[in-house]
């Protein structure tokens, strides 16, 4: 409780904060007894910031994201989302975009985006309007009637982003959303995501394996160690906004990416 109080105090001091995590540790029961998965995670994400988490495979990045979404509970520690704990999923506060193939194949793009609203029994007209707005926002005007198997990988993830944003949550969590895409589509989608982010002013926590993607997108990169996952470095990305593809060729970009790479190599 003392920890929660401290967190709240810190929040009022440091301006608007979207996510605060303190003293978070997680242990799960594996086949050979208790396995420590996450250890003493502390992080603060300011409202409207774009934070990217990188780390070796199996370091608990996804677990951490699931906890931020209220889908899983940590063994220890506190998570505050917009100042309140998140013991169970709350789509009005947090939207989630998963890895590939998370769209429902039996629903059209439009119905996939409407899905979260349908769960809350929102009126049909409102559902239609909001979903259409979101499809417009992600650049899929006129594609609402298509089914997932009729869409390309990039378009599917656009639909997934629209679905994550349809209830207008202040926070968007993204778990390697572009991992299954080819390199070119991936770059385009990263750029598109920044456009959507700047238009909607969301707070984004984004997990990726791609260091280039991390530097290109982030305000701040958090580097995690191998299991048990700890945050071993926080790197502010001071590149100006809006980001452009040219920046990837600059020395600053290269130095930032190298620094993350060094950290991950030693962490593995």
């Amino acid at each position: 409780m003392q920890r929660l109080a401290n967190l709240s105090a810190a929040r009022t001091d440091a301006g608007p904060t979207a996510i605060e995590v303190a003293g978070l540790s997680h242990v799960y029961d594996g086949r050979e007894g208790k396995v420590p998965a996450l250890e003493d995670i502390a992080m603060t994400v300011g409202a409207g910031r774009f934070v990217v988490i990188v780390g070796p495979s199996g370091c608990g990045k996804t677990s951490l994201l699931m906890m931020l979404a209220g889908l899983r509970r940590p063994s220890e520690g506190a998570i505050l989302c917009n100042g309140r704990p998140i013991p169970s999923p709350d789509p009005e506060r947090v939207g989630v975009v998963f890895q590939e193939a998370s769209l429902f194949p039996w629903l059209s793009a439009q119905d996939n985006v409407e899905f979260p609203l349908a769960l809350r029994h929102a009126p049909r007209a409102e559902r239609r309007r909001r979903a259409t707005d979101m499809l417009d926002l992600v650049g899929l005007q006129g594609f609402g009637g298509r089914y997932p198997h009729e869409l390309s990988g990039g378009m599917k993830q656009r639909v997934a982003i629209a679905r994550g944003l349809v209830q207008d949550p202040p926070v968007l969590l993204m778990d390697e959303p572009f991992a299954a895409l080819d390199e070119q589509t991936r770059m385009t989608m990263g750029h598109e995501l920044l456009r959507i982010w700047s238009q909607t002013l969301k707070t984004v926590v984004f997990i990726t394996h791609s260091l280039t993607e991390a530097v290109y997108l982030a305000d701040e990169v958090l580097v995690m160690s191998a299991r048990p996952g700890r945050i071993i470095d926080r790197i502010a990305i001071a590149l100006p906004r809006p980001r452009t593809y040219d920046m990837m060729a600059t020395d600053t970009f290269g130095r930032l990416r190298d620094r993350i790479w060094q950290q991950i190599r030693t962490a593995d």
């Binding site: 889908l71 789509p91 989630v96 998963f98 193939a101 998370s102 429902f104 899905f115 769960l119 809350r120």
Partner: peptide, 18 residues
């Protein structure tokens, strides 16, 4: 039934019946 789809539904606050 894909685990991904169940996770998506849960993350949007679906009840058991839903």
């Amino acid at each position: 039934v894909k685990a991904d789809h169940l996770l998506v539904a849960r993350s949007y606050g679906a009840t058991r019946a839903q």
